[in-house]
Amino acid sequence: MTEDPLDTLLARARDDTAQPSDALRARVVTDAVRVTAPVRRPFWRGLGGWIGLPGAALLGLWLGAAQPALVFEMMPGLASETALLDDVFGASFELALTE
């Protein structure tokens, strides 16, 4: 056989097909469904940092206002309730209280 008919034969092979088995089709489609399925996460995971930092800040504020004794107990260096509020809001808070 000369090379020209061989080239023709090789070119014909380019469009050749082989029927895949039904089992392979089933495996491939199962893979598609498994890989593309949305990942279910607990709803609080979605909230992430949005709930963490503001939540901690609010808890700290509430603790300072509602449970000052507990704060003094944990931080003995603070002299008084006023000093604690000063640390948080500055002198303007004290001024507002006296008005």
Binding site: D15, Q19, P38
Partner: peptide, 20 residues
């Protein structure tokens, strides 16, 4: 998007030549 039918159609279209 999780459409198994579309995955199957795409397989039917592309797999025979790939197999060969």
């Amino acid at each position: 998007g999780g459409d198994a039918r579309a995955a199957g159609v795409l397989f039917d279209r592309l797999a025979p030549r790939l197999m060969a």
